[in-house]
Design a protein around this nucleic acid. Structure first.
Lengths: 113, 113
DNA sequence: TTGACATATTCCGTTATCGGAATATATTGC
DNA sequence: GCAATATATTCCGATAACGGAATATGTCAA
């Protein structure tokens, strides 16, 4: 058995660097396909294809403006990512605490020289 | 030109569901390969391979214990993800605010019936 | 040393994914 | 309708990724 489709969930949609760049661009506001392509120096079909993937997972929405298609970020769709990460906050903070202890230890040692 | 390697960054490492499951398992504490395989009903080679990927991006570390290898989560390596997401907090909150306004509007309308 | 156990690696077939190029499908203005 | 502009889709070749099976490596215990 080989692997199954991936681009159909937020994690994979966001895994590609170019798609993150597109999302970053849209984070500044609604943009047309051509504008994105120009700004990021990507080919128009490339941008359209990535937008399709992003659209399929709901990370962007589209609206028509004349012959242009304006894409808009849908940030709430990042929630799965956010929530998954939240599950690691505990471990994360424990680490920072230990790091803090360690730094204080270093400082004590430095003072006693 | 075809695409270049992907599994070499945190975003892609985390993009695979089985790898997220492994990380979730390790979030409870250090575990041996076999234990993970049993808990998650994955084959041992499969687990080893995923751990290799996770290891290469620093998300897990390894220590020997007899003939076993204990893997441990390195949560601070999730930072790139965390930071990237943080860039969307603004948009995220704006959305929530607007949602809030909308709910209040609904409520006002409800009261005036 | 040998055998059992634990993990890592290699090989393989299948499929997904990417970028580029060409082409198809709107939509507008004349 | 026709040309121009804007976007989407399709076809392609190359390659990366996955899972399974077999095998290699490493470690302990008797």
């Amino acid at each position: 058995m080989a692997r199954s489709s991936t681009t159909s969930d937020v994690f994979n949609a966001v895994a590609e660097a170019s798609r993150r760049e597109i999302l970053d661009a849209l984070n500044e506001g609604e943009k047309a396909v051509g504008a994105i392509a120009t700004d990021l120096s990507m080919s128009q079909p490339q941008v359209s294809k990535h937008l399709r993937v992003l659209s399929e997972v709901g990370l962007v929405s589209r609206r028509a403006d004349g012959r242009r298609r304006l894409y808009r970020l849908e940030p709430e769709r990042l929630r799965p990512l956010h929530e998954w990460l939240a599950g690691y906050e505990q471990a994360w903070n424990d680490r920072l605490d230990r790091m803090d202890d360690y730094l204080q230890e270093l400082q004590r040692q430095g003072e006693s020289q």
